[in-house]
């Protein structure tokens, strides 16, 4: 579904990603793991068209997306829920969700909104509240809900568990699994290695701009190098 080939990218003169090859298939959860500053968000931002890659290609459902504008990428159904939520603080929860279908999924806006607030009952209670007044966990739900409003084919979740309480993190991973069970392909970008590997089908580990390991989630979970590097075991 999503195919990244030989991607080199960075900011200005500085190259951060030095040749990335990865794929996400239909119906899969792929976990992209790595610690802070290895280039996970750079990869995301290039896939979503916020930056232009230096070299390499990005294909989505066989179509070339390299260098396409963000709105063209959203229109195809490749939706990113960004790190730090990026909800519109001055707009109500309802308006945030409505704008989720600004350029895709507009005909089914009312039905999708109903589905999202059924998935996240907390958002239903706060529909008229300004998004900036929500708690971190609620903002994360809103960001995901806003992404779902665009009827995604592939959802990229960038650090969805960041800043959430352990209980909410559990909930978040259960939700990701549920969305995937309904057929949504997910690229999960996370630092939380254990829980990500528990729900992912496949995973890759990004280290200093290259993929250090990749394979099935179960295989990686059993890998002693990975366990030593990320879990201290």
């Amino acid at each position: 579904m999503l195919e990244v080939r030989g991607l080199r990218a960075g900011y200005g003169q500085i190259e951060i990603l030095r040749g990335i090859d990865m794929q996400v298939g239909a119906g899969e959860i792929v976990a992209l793991l790595g610690s802070n500053g290895v280039g996970k968000s750079t990869l995301n931002n290039n896939i979503c068209g916020l930056y232009r890659p230096f070299a390499g290609r990005i294909l989505f459902e066989g179509e070339e997306l390299t260098g396409a504008r963000p709105e063209a990428i959203v229109a195809r159904g490749l939706i990113q829920v960004p790190e730090g939520r990026r909800v519109f603080p001055n707009l109500s929860v309802r308006e945030n969700l409505e704008l989720g279908s600004y350029c895709r999924g507009k005909p089914h806006r009312a039905a999708n909104l109903e589905r999202v607030v059924t998935t996240f009952p907390r958002l239903r209670e706060r529909l008229v509240q300004k998004a900036g007044t929500l708690s971190g966990g609620e903002q994360q739900m809103l960001a995901i809900g806003r992404g779902l409003m665009a009827e995604p084919k592939l959802l990229i979740l960038d650090e969805p568990s960041l800043g959430l309480s352990p209980l909410l993190v559990e909930e978040m991973f259960a939700l990701i699994q549920r969305l995937n069970a309904e057929g949504l392909a997910i690229l999960l970008v996370e630092q939380n290695v254990v829980q990500s590997l528990a729900i992912a089908h496949r995973a890759c580990v990004l280290e200093a701009g290259v993929l250090a390991m990749s394979g099935t989630a179960a295989g990686l979970a059993a890998n002693t190098d990975l366990r030593r590097a990320y879990l201290g075991m």
Binding site: L50, P70, E71, I73, V74, P82, F88, L99, G100
Partner: peptide
């Protein structure tokens, strides 16, 4: 208030 978020929902 949120240009990056706007780009990611497909606002030009």
């Amino acid at each position: 208030k949120e240009r990056q978020g706007a780009r990611l929902v497909g606002i030009d």
